[in-house]
Amino acid sequence: MSQTSNPTQQRTFAQKFRKNYIGWLFIILSVLGISLFYFYPMVQALLLSLQSGMGSTLEYVGLDNYVRLFNDPTFITALTNTILYLLIQVPVMIVLALIFSVLLNDPTLKFKGFFRTAIFLPAVTSLVAYAVIFKYLFGNDGLVNDFLLNMNLVSEPLNWLSDPFLAKITIIIAITWRWTGYNMIFYLSALQNVDKSMYEASKIDGASAIQQFFFITIPLLKPIILFTSIVSTIGTLQLFDEVMNITSGGPGNATMTISMYIYNLSFEYTPDFGYAATVSYVILILVVILSFIQFRVAGDRD
């Protein structure tokens, strides 16, 4: 009884309730929108993954599609390639983007606007142009080979696009080239919210730039690094544009990705939307596992 009569106690409770209820108002529109535009179709896709057939002539086959996956060499190749891209490309890109953003965050640096815009440009370059240019640069008599030959680094032109190993390297270079500037933006914007005085204090303590990078910048940017890693993981697991436009998955299936396989199953071959949905859910499961690990590693608690 005495508790209710305590005015402060009562106010905090009311406040708490009000805050909580307002909190829901902040997110309600998103929850409804995502449910309608994403979850509803996702449930339908899940049902679809239990069906098989051509085009609109589908019938329920239970888990057959999921069994089929394990005996499908194209799927296994696509999965292996995609994971390879992920393991090599995402860390390289994240580190490069971090380095660029830290260098470009230096207030005394000149031509910052130019450098930032230049490094971001690949992300806005139209895919069509980008593909034509990449194929031209990495062609047998393209500029990359010319350069390597002139520098005497290789004795004969490398088949960047038609050798199964080199084609994968080309794709990795292409994605890194296109998306590093994009990731840089997230770091650059986050760095503006970092308290500058921390750097000044550490400078007085005699910390080097590299020490500052590892002991101040990285820990502070942790939420954003987590964000970019997860987003890049998702992006790479759904990688499609670059492969489709530069190598079309070739030579053979050497650069094929899971998303490209989904596209082929849906549109390039006689459409089997059921099996395509099954493959899509494999991506979902993979991302869930990888994101869970990343959340854990980053320790996403305050």
């Binding site: 994403y38 509803y40 896709a45 679809l48 499609f240 596209y263 849906s266």
Partner: peptide
């Protein structure tokens, strides 16, 4: 979760919607 599924997979149900 909604950003983890390839768009191609939900495109047809979304179109139907």
């Amino acid at each position: 979760l909604s950003m983890m599924i390839p768009f191609a997979a939900i495109m047809i149900p979304l179109y139907r919607l």
